[in-house]
């Protein structure tokens, strides 16, 4: 069974979690061009690498960040938003 560590609830089966994609900084919708906005809405970084991703532990609705190697499917660390210092 694949495991994931929730920063609040500890290590749980990955089936208790949902994945919400890579963290992507949002451009200012009022200041950016239409092209920049479309690129933000649609484009993804599809190549493998270590990525910072949104995950949620669904039973407790805890949103947090996982740093994961998307080729090896290996989680390096997980932490709550703002705790990565």
């Amino acid at each position: 069974m694949k495991l994931m560590t929730c920063p609040v609830n500890g290590t749980r089966p990955v089936s208790e979690f949902v994945y919400w994609g890579e963290i992507r900084p949002m451009p200012d919708p009022d200041a950016c061009s239409d092209d920049e906005w479309a690129a933000y809405v649609f484009n993804r970084n599809g190549a493998p690498g270590v990525k910072k991703e949104w995950w949620c532990h669904t039973p407790s609705n805890t949103w947090f960040i996982a740093e994961r190697d998307t080729e090896k499917d290996f989680v390096l660390r997980t932490y709550l938003y703002g705790d990565d210092r």
Partner: peptide, 8 residues
């Protein structure tokens, strides 16, 4: 349900 670039 989530991104992986391998064939495991």
């Amino acid at each position: 349900p989530y991104e992986v670039q391998s064939t495991r």
